[in-house]
């Protein structure tokens, strides 16, 4: 009998312990969610996004009420455990690619990234070609233009001239 009682209390104790542990666990998970993401964490993502309604204003510095809501949305999604990429994707799905500070590298948008370097390379190629044309073949024919060379640079005074000459010396 006693034994039985004891066992019951034991069970009761166990149950209590279980409840305590469980609430403890629950409490811990609750705690893990509790500290809402800081402003800095929100801004780190908002910085990479643009306000979908105002033109050309990054979301982290946009002062409007709408932007405040979007920052809260980021905070909420962070709290739900979404990653930076997922949040950005959410914004793109909802508001279009224009919320990204750079166009996504897909399809036509590749042109955005490819055109400037290509043009720069073309420019460099043109320049080097011109150099080759200027420097190599015409040395013999340069007599016609060499009058210019004897003429010292027009505005410079004597000392500048002397300094310029000095620059040409090898040693």
């Amino acid at each position: 009998m006693n034994n039985y009682k004891l066992r019951i209390t034991n069970y009761g104790f166990l149950a209590l312990a279980f409840v305590l542990v469980a609430t403890g666990l629950f409490y811990q998970t609750a705690l893990a969610q509790e500290p809402t993401p800081t402003d800095d964490e929100v801004n780190a993502i908002a910085k990479q996004l643009y306000c979908p309604v105002c033109e050309n204003t990054p979301l982290d510095v946009c002062p409007t009420e709408a932007c405040r809501q979007w920052r809260e949305l980021i905070r909420q999604q962070l709290a739900e455990g979404r990653t930076e990429e997922e949040i950005k994707q959410y914004f793109v799905n909802n508001y279009g690619a224009r919320v990204l500070s750079e166009p996504p590298r897909t399809g036509f948008n590749w042109l955005v990234y490819v055109v400037p370097p290509v043009l720069l390379l073309i420019g460099a190629a043109v320049l080097f070609n011109a150099f080759r044309a200027w420097t190599k073949p015409k040395v013999a024919a340069s007599a016609s233009g060499s009058g210019r060379e004897a003429e010292p640079s027009s505005v410079d005074d004597e000392y500048i001239k002397r300094m310029e000459e000095e620059l040409k010396k090898r040693k």
């Binding site: 979908p52 709408a66 809501q69 809260e72 909420q76």
Partner: peptide
């Protein structure tokens, strides 16, 4: 609903 948050 033009660019908005679901909550809003």
């Amino acid at each position: 609903d033009y660019v908005d948050t679901p909550e809003g």
